[in-house]
Amino acid sequence: MEEYNLTCIRCPMGCSLKVTVDGSEVTVTGNTCPRGADYGKQEVTAPVRTVTSTVPVAGGEIPVVSVKTAGDIPKDKIADVMKDIKKASVTAPVKIGDVIAGNAGGTGTDVIATKDIKAR
């Protein structure tokens, strides 16, 4: 049986979680919401993160647009996702939700814009 003390990162409450793994049985205590239980289980089995960054915009009112992975990606794929984000660029106008890089890092998750950028 293994025990992990984690801080939930699903929201800024940052609950202190105790996660116990006994074979295939994973129990989470210390969470105040179901998201915390999911996070605890996920974190000790296959941890995931949302990646945020920026991508250059041609002809925009500002030179970069903020982006995020449309969902969580495996933590060990962060570097691969960043490689694809660094290769990407777009032309203004950009709308929130526009796909900036499809299937980033081979994760099956798209990188999407999180800011509207008007053309200059």
């Binding site: 699903r10 929201c11 945020t52 903020s66 995020k68 929130i96 999180t114 800011k115």
Partner: peptide
Amino acid sequence: EELTGPEYAA
């Protein structure tokens, strides 16, 4: 839902 800062502002 979980948003980024610019999305929350928007």
